[in-house]
């Protein structure tokens, strides 16, 4: 019996493409889950640093402004 190799090729294509996509889709799902876990339980020190200097800066500014206002009022 003559084997139809084109048909064989089509079967390999179907199997191959579905494997590649399954692999990548599972990989995407795992990546998303992993990112969520990492961000929730192991937030990076950088993130904290990024926000805290801004906070302290603001706090310092507010302190300085309040002090200036208080001083101004007292002088009056």
């Amino acid at each position: 019996m003559e084997v139809n190799y084109v048909f064989e090729g089509l079967k390999i294509m179907l199997l191959g493409m579905s494997t590649v996509f399954t692999f990548l889709v599972v990989m995407i799902v795992m990546m998303n889950i992993m990112s969520k876990i990492v961000h929730r339980f192991f937030p990076e020190a950088n993130d904290a640093n990024n926000t805290s200097p801004a906070m302290t800066n603001n706090a310092k500014k507010i302190a300085a402004i309040t002090a200036a206002i208080m001083h101004h009022r007292q002088v009056k």
Binding site: V6, G9, I12, M13, G16, M17, V20
Partner: peptide, 13 residues
């Protein structure tokens, strides 16, 4: 990767 499997069919054809 469709390029890979499409060409496989092309080559056997």
């Amino acid at each position: 990767q469709f390029g890979i499997f499409g060409t496989l069919v092309g080559a056997v054809a």
